[in-house]
Nucleic acid binder design. Structure first.
Ligand SMILES: [Zn+2]
Length: 155
DNA sequence: TCGTTTTGACCCTCA
DNA sequence: GTGAGGGTCAAAACG
């Protein structure tokens, strides 16, 4: 048995020419303020986006691109009000930030990288930054750490 | 061409 | 057992 478990999607090919131009996907506030996620020095790939009605915000899911890094990032922002951006980091990186993931051949020599932070959790700093970014109006609960409820079967 | 983003569907847990 | 809610995957679109 078993079988057919690989059929995840019924697959419906609906080819419609002339769909809407996506134009700006980012949220634009009435005044041209685009939502941009602060960079942390790591590379993430977005693997999902959902609207959480409970908080009335859009939540984006990012995962570290590194091979064996289970680090994940989650970004929440209001669908209407700009300025409320919340970023939560999950997991730890098993690699250094200096690891070149980019295969670019000639790099502009990384001359002295200005690394003023110690080799601790850079993510932590992010958290603080997030507060500044999202801390403008409502400050619900700001106690997010890495200890989440590992939903799902965790090894 | 391939990697990343986008988006719907599917999976799992809780009530 | 169903529904709501939240999280992840994968095909397609885009660059
Ligand atoms: Zn990582």
């Amino acid at each position: 048995m078993s079988d057919a478990s690989h059929s995840r999607q019924p697959s419906m090919e609906i080819d419609q020419d002339g769909y809407r131009d996506q134009d700006d996907q980012q949220d634009i506030d009435g005044r041209g303020y685009r939502l941009v996620l602060p960079e942390d020095g790591y590379e993430w790939k977005k693997y999902g986006q959902k609207f959480i009605k409970n908080i009335g915000k859009v939540r984006s899911y990012f995962k570290c691109q590194r091979s064996n890094c289970g680090a994940k990032k989650r970004a929440d922002w209001s669908t209407s009000e700009a300025g409320s951006l919340r970023v939560v980091y999950d997991g730890l990186h098993s690699h250094s930030q200096s690891d070149d993931l980019h295969h670019h051949g000639t790099t502009t020599t990384s001359s002295s990288s200005s690394n003023s932070m110690s080799t601790r959790s850079t993510a932590n700093q992010y958290d603080l930054l997030t507060q500044v970014f999202g801390d403008h109006r409502s400050l619900t609960n700001n106690s997010h750490h890495d200890d989440h409820h590992q939903h799902h079967h965790q090894n």
